[in-house]
Design a protein around this nucleic acid. Structure first.
Length: 465
RNA sequence: GUCCCCUUCGUCUAGAGGCCUAGGACACCGGGUUUUCAUCUCGGCAACAGGGGUUCGACUCCCCUAGGGGACGCCA
């Protein structure tokens, strides 16, 4: 049997972290088993579904590299098929028309709640043999007795009594099919072997199994994934920061890092933290998925991102950096090659956006000096030292990091001061603050002309103080 | 409320009855390396929700309680 998994989002918003993780597990399993991964858009709720959301979801999946082998299928394109199945259910006595008003439904719900019972449809029209009318819906005749056993690869065996279930609506009064019907039909038609989805669907599973049984369809394997919550353990929402996967892209995270971070949420392979895509596929096993929900931690994602920034081929990172440079208005032709920037700053940047900001001084003039740095390192003798080093730098024959370092050391020796006495003012002159990569490489990359200009500028600044 | 699910350091997790004095990672705190920042490195802090069983022995199995989550829609 070929393994076929699917990701079936409803297009009511962007691809969020939880959806991405669900998709990832589904995708990984398909890849691992040499199977197929299908993308299906569950857009039967026409009120809330938008093309914009469909595009956003596809963009997100594409960015993360989760390519689908089939689809996207749209449920709205399959209405004829759903009609057909519903008719079959009707013909076989597994479904019936119901004309209970919404008011009546609300009323019995209230009554049941008041009696501390689980709200359920009371089966009022179940045996009335009603015919189709404008205001009728079609309900599935759920078995009254017995129980449904779900064999879940994550949860184990879950048994639900049929008495807990009710006759759910499978076709609305406007003639459109509902979720529980469409999923069943699609998973069946699309020969989905493994339904890997969020935990929130565990409760729907027994209903779906009953429909599948009524249809004489095979029951797929199930794996219900635990949820991802915010850092505070509450449902992930906008107040926790970025929820959309693409927002992480905008913030300078690498797809590899996001994937790696996500795969470790609810899944593990011993103590291993970092996985290449190949390793993920090779080592992924449904049996290693956790049962409990996990909390999203931006700190760990940041750490992970930096791991990738540091280990990925700098040329490739530079290619991506170019995009962010542009986005943040930096003219890359005004400064050093991006590969150099990556090599210099990847140990000091957790995201590509941070790298952009950390490298800004290479491309744009220093507008202001960090007050604390100035206070601490600009002292009485600083100007003299700056003038000396400027002189030596101006006369350097070759502008290379090691030559520059040599010159700085020379001044340190001649003036009989500590290295910081020379290096710090230089840093301030060139970057605006004292936090910078090694000073010699920085000057090397910045170039002689800009270096001298900036020293002059700082000298003027000191004079005016 | 009813039903279902979950519960190991602050967070992600290892743990398949003795390997547990509960391991790793992030974060945090200290030391070292370093011209600053960072990287790197060494060390520290820190958890089996509670209570009953079962067993020679329980983080691991069973039950109860508590807490958290989900479902209960003509949403998906």
């Amino acid at each position: 049997m070929t393994v076929r998994t699917r990701f079936a989002p409803s297009p009511t918003g962007y691809l969020h972290i939880g959806g991405a993780r669900t998709s990832l597990f589904s995708w990984l399993y398909a890849k691992k088993m040499g199977g197929e991964f299908i993308l299906r858009i569950e857009d039967t709720d026409r009120e809330r579904s938008t093309q914009e959301a469909v595009d956003a979801i596809i963009d997100g999946m594409e960015w993360l590299g989760m390519e689908h082998d089939e689809g996207p299928y749209y449920q709205t394109h399959r209405f004829d098929r759903y009609k057909e199945v519903i008719q079959q259910l009707l013909d076989d006595g597994h479904a019936y028309y119901c004309n209970c008003s919404r008011e009546r439904l609300d009323q019995i719900r209230e009554q049941q709640m008041a009696k501390k019972e689980k709200p359920k449809y009371d089966g009022c029209c179940r045996d009335k043999g009603l015919a189709e009318a404008d205001d009728t819906v079609i309900r599935f005749k759920n078995p009254l007795e017995g129980e449904v056993t779900i064999t879940d690869h994550v949860r184990g065996t879950v048994v639900i009594k049929n008495q807990e279930l009710d006759d759910l609506i499978i076709e609305r009064s406007d003639g459109t099919p509902t979720y529980n019907l469409t999923v069943v039909v699609d998973d069946w038609d699309m020969k989905i072997s493994h339904v890997i989805r969020g935990d929130d669907h565990l409760n729907n599973t027994p209903r779906q199994i009953n429909i599948l049984n009524a249809l004489g369809a095979q029951i797929p394997e199930y794996a219900h994934l635990p949820m991802i919550n915010g850092p505070d353990g509450k449902k992930l929402s906008k107040r926790h920061g970025a929820v959309s996967v693409m927002q992480y892209h905008e913030e300078g995270y690498l797809a590899e890092a996001v994937l790696n971070y996500l795969v470790r949420l609810g899944w593990s392979h011993g103590d291993q933290e970092v996985f290449t895509l190949e390793e993920m596929i090779e080592k992924f096993d449904i049996r290693d998925i956790n049962k409990s929900s996990s909390n999203f931690s931006i700190e760990k994602l940041q750490w992970m991102n930096q791991q990738y920034l540091m280990s990925l081929d700098p040329v490739r990172v530079a290619e991506q950096l170019a995009f962010y440079m542009m986005e943040h208005g930096i003219k890359i032709e005004e400064g050093p090659a991006l590969v150099e920037i990556v090599m210099l700053l990847r140990e000091r940047s957790r995201t590509l956006v941070e790298m952009v900001e950390n490298s800004r001084f290479f491309y744009e003039p220093v507008e202001e000096y960090d007050a604390k740095s100035v206070k601490k390192h600009i002292k009485a003798g600083t100007s003299a030292i700056l003038v000396t080093i400027r002189e030596k730098l101006a006369n350097l024959e070759e502008w290379y990091a090691d030559k520059i370092h040599h010159v700085v050391q020379e001044v340190v020796n001649e003036q009989e001061v500590g290295f910081p006495k020379v290096a710090m003012p230089l840093r301030i002159a060139v970057t605006g603050s004292t936090m910078s990569p090694s000073i010699d490489t920085t000057l090397d990359l910045l170039g002689r002309e800009k270096t001298l200009d900036r020293i002059d500028k700082l000298l003027v600044f000191i004079a005016n103080q």
